[in-house]
């Protein structure tokens, strides 16, 4: 039971840092360095890991904006084993046998996608995330990679998703949308494409 609930609990924990807010159609400023335009209404919230938008509920259909992950950082701060390790045990040089999957500014496109799928699979409870396709693409004009993926977490509801990632000023910008394969992915995919296409990144 715990294993089945873990991804959900993690998602709730991720979304628990700040309250949800209504995202109205129009231009939306995500941060000082990024903004998008949407034609639909979403529920959204942001925290140190980025921004999450949803229409029917997190995990059912979800938009994730990871904006400016620095060299050496994990996709989610909770996945940084060394940083979150008990400091007393750290002083005793006792480390858990656990790698932190970290972004590197020298990563190639495959490695960026692989960094994402590994981190995401870990978050979903050690489930395999399958990359279905990869192709050259761009994010606000910056050369990047487009990828499609699918996975089935412990709740047995298959998810499909796609995303675009690019490295700008040595930082990773990765936006992806996912939804249940049977309904939600197709429902909002076209809008998700438009939102990603509208992303503006301010350099510097």
């Amino acid at each position: 039971m715990t294993r089945r609930l873990l991804p959900l609990l993690l998602l709730i924990a991720l979304s628990a840092c700040e309250s949800w807010q209504k995202i109205s159609p129009g231009a939306v400023k995500l941060s000082d360095k990024a903004e998008v335009v949407t034609s639909q209404t979403w529920s959204g919230q942001g925290d140190r890991d980025g921004f999450v938008w949803t229409q029917d509920g997190p995990g059912i259909d979800t938009f994730f904006f990871h904006l400016g992950i620095k060299d050496g950082k994990t996709l989610f701060e909770s996945q940084d084993v060394e940083k979150n390790h008990n400091f007393i045990l750290k002083l005793m040089n006792r480390q858990p046998d656990q790698i932190s999957f970290r972004f590197s500014k020298t990563m190639t496109e495959w490695e960026i996608v692989e960094f994402f799928t590994t981190s995401w699979g870990k978050l979903a409870g050690d489930v395999p995330v399958k990359v279905e396709a990869m192709a050259p693409s761009s994010l606000d004009g910056h050369p990047g990679i487009r990828f499609q993926y699918s996975y089935t977490p412990k709740d047995e509801l298959r998810r499909r998703g796609f995303g675009i990632a690019a490295v700008v000023d040595d930082k990773l910008y990765l936006v992806h949308y996912l939804g249940s394969a049977i309904y939600h992915f197709d429902k909002n995919k076209a809008e998700a494409e438009k939102v990603i296409a509208s992303l503006k990144i301010k350099k510097g």
Binding site: D97, Q98, I99, S100, F101, T118, G121, K122, D126, P128
Partner: peptide, 15 residues
């Protein structure tokens, strides 16, 4: 091979 790569993704380097 899938099983081996699942093992890698656990991130338990030493084991």
């Amino acid at each position: 091979l899938d099983f081996l790569l699942d093992e890698v993704k656990l991130g338990q380097f030493r084991e």
